[in-house]
Amino acid sequence: MSDDKRNTGSPDRDRINLSEDYELDYWTQALGVTRAELREAVEAAGPMAEAVRNHLAQKG
């Protein structure tokens, strides 16, 4: 199923989708990390934004 850009409710905002360039751009800027760091964090913590934030906070 493709990402419906018109459906931007909470579940969509709370997930990090690494297959969309615009999401990579948004999340790398919002979290102050590189794409590689973001990918590593999502692989380690899962796609939920809060879990990724927590993972990055523990690393830094």
Rank of each mutant, 00 (worst) to 15 (best):
A45W: 00
G9R: 08
T28I: 02
A36Y: 12
M1D: 06
P47I: 03
L38E: 02
E40N: 12
Y22C: 10
E20P: 01
K5D: 03
R6C: 08
A45L: 01
R15Y: 07
A51M: 14
H55C: 11
D12S: 15
A49K: 06
I16T: 00
A45F: 01
Q29P: 01
A44T: 14
G60Q: 14
R35S: 13
E50C: 09
T34S: 15
R6Q: 13
Q29R: 15
R39C: 10
T8W: 11
E50S: 13
A41I: 09
E40I: 07
A49C: 10
L18Q: 02
R6G: 09
G32P: 00
N17G: 11
M1K: 07
D14W: 05
R15V: 08
A51C: 12
L38C: 07
Q29C: 07
A41F: 05
G60H: 12
L31W: 02
D21C: 06
A51W: 08
M48R: 10
S19N: 08
T28S: 07
Q58N: 12
V33Q: 00
L24H: 01
E43L: 07
D3C: 08
E43R: 10
R39W: 05
G60F: 04
R15A: 11
V33N: 00
S2H: 11
M1V: 08
E40W: 03
Q58L: 14
L38K: 04
A36F: 11
P11L: 11
A49M: 10
G60V: 12
A36I: 12
E50A: 14
L38I: 09
D12I: 09
R39G: 07
E50I: 11
R13M: 15
K59L: 06
N54G: 12
D12C: 14
E43S: 11
G46Y: 04
W27L: 05
A44Y: 04
K59D: 06
V33A: 00
L31M: 06
G60K: 14
A51E: 15
A44G: 06
V42L: 00
D12R: 15
N54R: 15
E20D: 11
L18S: 01
T34A: 04
W27H: 10
H55F: 10
R35G: 09
E40R: 07
R39D: 13
G46Q: 05
A45P: 01
G46P: 05
Y26V: 01
N17K: 14
K59T: 08
W27V: 00
E40V: 10
R39K: 15
D21N: 11
Y22L: 12
I16V: 03
R15G: 03
G32A: 04
D3A: 10
D4F: 06
D3K: 10
N54F: 06
P47A: 05
V42D: 00
G32Y: 03
A36V: 13
R13P: 01
D21P: 04
V52W: 00
D21I: 09
L18N: 02
A36Q: 15
Y26N: 03
G60A: 10
D25S: 13
A41W: 02
H55Q: 15
E37M: 09
L56I: 00
P11T: 11
E50F: 12
Y22T: 08
A30K: 09
R39F: 08
G9I: 05
E50Q: 13
L56D: 00
A45T: 05
